[in-house]
Structures are given as structure tokens and as C-alpha cells.
């Protein structure tokens, strides 16, 4: 447990009471770990605090209680070791796509020569398919999908140990989404970085992740389950749906979101130190190990 690459211990976020209201506990007793090189997605209903957790991991926000420990050290403040891809891309609009990436590379490697910085930036832009002049355009002159790619290139170019993605594909159409998901997987495969990603899309999570964390609804949200996606890699979209595990995993996730996330929510439902229950679906129709039981969507 303490050997994990990233470990989140007893995290809670509370907001003081507004005038005439009650104090708000967005989430509490959030404990989970992420191993090095793992691709972890987190799913939960809107407002349960996913972005807050991600911002705490990034060091941009502070938790009310608990700690985040990465590589044996407590996370305090932002660091280049944790790259963030923001939901709204957050590219600097006065810089070209290329300059946005060199901005990051220069921050990471202040001692590099200009040519080296540019070459490094070009390589990462090419990885996500931004080339042939598009790299010289300003973000406002790029499509949403291209901006998102630039933003991913910027994050990967600083070679962070942990990559944090907040609904990176939320604003994209299905086709572009698929292309960039594949690019993300490719870059992740090449760099062996650790990825923590928020998504609302169950299929996206199954396609990408090694493990999916499920959050109950807020207030007093918690990370209730950790679903292992044992589908073999490399995955292809049409092959994974043939896998018998695929729909069982999918049903489990959809059912959690549709019903159990609400049933399990509420104050003091879990012990402070409780870890998320591990749910694993093995190849041949066995019940999920450790999980309570498998629910069907129309249960």
C-alpha cells in the first residue's frame, strides 16, 4: 500500500456554510492508490467532486483533510511532475500551437538550446497529428479537436510522471474522440507514464483504462469501487465488444451510475479508512471477485 506510486489518504473537501445554510462536504474518506504506469479512469455523477480530486492531485487545490502522496512525498502545490490537461484545454491564446508546447518544454528544460526545445515540441505535436503548418496557428484558428491534441502534446512534452486529464474529450464529436483516444493510448504506450483521467463516458473508460474508480453521488461522495478492466491490450474497439467481459463490465458501470451511486451515497456510509471494493470480471462468467454481486441494468 505504501509502496504505491500514488496514494490518496483520507481525502475530504468541505466548504464552510454559506449564510443561513449548512456546511457542504463534497466528498470524504477518499482513499485509493494508483500504480506506476497504470491508466486509471474515474467516473461519477456531475458535482461529486471529480475535478476537485484531480485539482488536489495536481496541487492546484487544497483538500480540507487527508493527503496525497506521490513517489513517497506529499503533494504540496503544483509541479512539473504532474502534467494537467484541462477540460477547456487552457492553451495560451496569444501563442501558436508550437509556442504553447515550447512554453512547456522550456519550463521543464530551462537549460536546453532553442533548437532542441523546438525539435522536442515538434516531435510531440507530430505524435498527436498536428503538423503541416497547423502548428503555427493560434488556438483560435484550430478546431476543438486540434486544440485538445495540442493540449495533450503540451502535457506529454514535459514528460510528467503523472498525467491528469479532466474530461479531455468532453467537447468532441464521437469520431474525433475516437481518433484522439487512440493517439492518447499510443503516446501512453510509448512513454509509460501514469494517467489519471476523469470521464463521463463508460465506453471510453472501458476502452482506455486498466482500472475504473467509481464515485458515489455527492454530498459526502466517496470512491466506492475500483473496477479492474482485464481486457487484453492492445485493444481495438471492435474486438473488445466481442469479449464476454465487456458487457458485464459495462452493465456493472451503467448500473452503478444509474442506481447504486445514489443508493450508496449519503453521510457516514463507509468507514473512514475504507478502501474501494475491488471488482474484477474474469473471462468465463464467474461472479466478480470481491464485489457484492453483479447487477443487471434492468435489475
Amino acid at each position: 500500500m505504501s509502496k504505491s506510486f500514488l496514494s490518496v489518504e483520507g481525502l475530504a473537501k468541505r466548504f464552510p456554510a454559506p449564510k443561513g445554510g449548512k456546511p457542504l462536504t463534497v466528498f470524504e474518506h477518499v482513499n485509493f492508490t494508483v500504480e506506476k504506469g497504470e491508466f486509471v479512469c474515474i467516473i461519477g455523477h456531475s458535482g461529486c467532486g471529480k475535478s476537485t480530486i484531480l485539482n488536489v492531485l495536481a496541487g492546484l487545490d487544497e483538500a480540507s483533510e487527508g493527503a496525497v502522496i506521490m513517489g513517497g512525498r506529499e503533494v504540496k502545490g503544483p509541479s512539473l511532475d504532474r502534467g494537467v490537461v484541462f477540460q477547456n484545454y487552457s492553451l495560451l491564446p496569444w501563442l501558436s500551437a508550437l509556442k504553447n508546447v515550447t512554453f512547456a518544454v522550456r519550463a521543464r528544460h530551462p537549460d536546453w538550446r532553442r533548437e532542441k526545445v523546438t525539435a522536442h515540441a515538434y516531435r510531440h505535436l507530430e505524435m498527436v497529428g498536428i503538423s503541416d503548418g497547423a502548428e503555427h496557428r493560434k488556438p483560435s484558428q484550430l478546431s476543438g479537436g486540434m486544440r485538445q491534441r495540442v493540449s495533450i502534446a503540451r502535457a506529454f512534452a514535459t514528460q510528467p510522471e503523472l498525467l491528469l486529464l479532466d474530461e479531455p474529450f468532453g467537447a468532441l464529436d464521437a469520431l474525433t474522440r475516437g481518433v484522439i483516444q487512440d493517439e492518447l493510448l499510443k503516446v501512453w504506450g510509448e512513454t509509460h507514464q501514469t494517467v489519471f483521467m476523469i470521464t463521463h463516458d463508460v465506453d471510453e473508460a472501458i476502452y482506455l483504462a486498466d482500472r475504473i474508480l467509481l464515485m458515489t453521488n455527492g454530498p459526502f461522495a466517496q470512491v466506492a469501487e475500483s473496477v479492474e478492466i482485464s481486457l487484453p491490450r492492445p485493444r481495438s474497439r471492435d474486438a473488445i465488444v466481442e469479449d464476454p467481459r465487456y458487457y458485464r463490465i459495462r452493465n456493472h458501470l451503467v448500473h452503478f451510475l444509474a442506481r447504486r451511486s445514489k443508493e450508496m451515497s449519503g453521510e457516514r456510509r463507509r468507514e473512514p479508512g475504507a478502501r474501494p471494493t475491488t471488482v474484477r470480471f474474469d473471462a468465463e462468467g464467474e461472479p466478480p471477485a470481491g464485489g457484492p454481486r453483479l447487477y443487471a441494468v434492468n435489475d
Binding site: G59, P78, L80, R82, F86, N88, S90, L92
Partner: peptide, 12 residues
């Protein structure tokens, strides 16, 4: 705030 966060995550 997003742009300031970009600066912060890049340790400027």
C-alpha cells in the same frame, strides 16, 4: 484563472 494555473503547473 486557467492561464494562471498553466503557469503554476509549469512551475513558473
Amino acid at each position: 484563472k486557467d492561464w494562471l494555473n498553466v503557469a503554476r503547473t509549469h512551475e513558473l
